[in-house]
């Protein structure tokens, strides 16, 4: 499933990152690589980014970014 559809409070593992080059490196630099575990603090809405926690860091990802990351619930 896409990260943009992720539910609040659920833990996920990143499966695939379909971002173009520069954004791919940007998410990677924040520890969001394939296999990383994340926790949804606040789900995405139409006008708001998603807020996820990855290894104690809260990261906000805009809708186009979270649409391009695929995750699986764990």
């Amino acid at each position: 499933m896409k990260l943009i559809d992720a539910k609040k409070g659920q833990k996920y593992q990143i499966n695939k990152i379909n971002l173009h080059n520069e954004l791919f490196f940007r998410v990677l630099n924040l520890g969001l690589f394939i296999g990383a575990t994340i926790y949804v603090v606040k789900p995405a809405t139409k006008n708001m980014p998603i807020l996820i926690n990855c290894d104690s860091l809260n990261v906000a990802l805009g809708n186009d970014v979270s649409k391009a990351i695929e995750v699986k619930a764990i």
């Binding site: 954004l23 924040l30 990261v59 906000a60 990802l61 805009g62 809708n63 186009d64």
Partner: peptide, 9 residues
């Protein structure tokens, strides 16, 4: 492409 928001909170 206009909204590529990535921010450490």
């Amino acid at each position: 492409v206009n909204n590529s928001f990535i921010l450490e909170m």
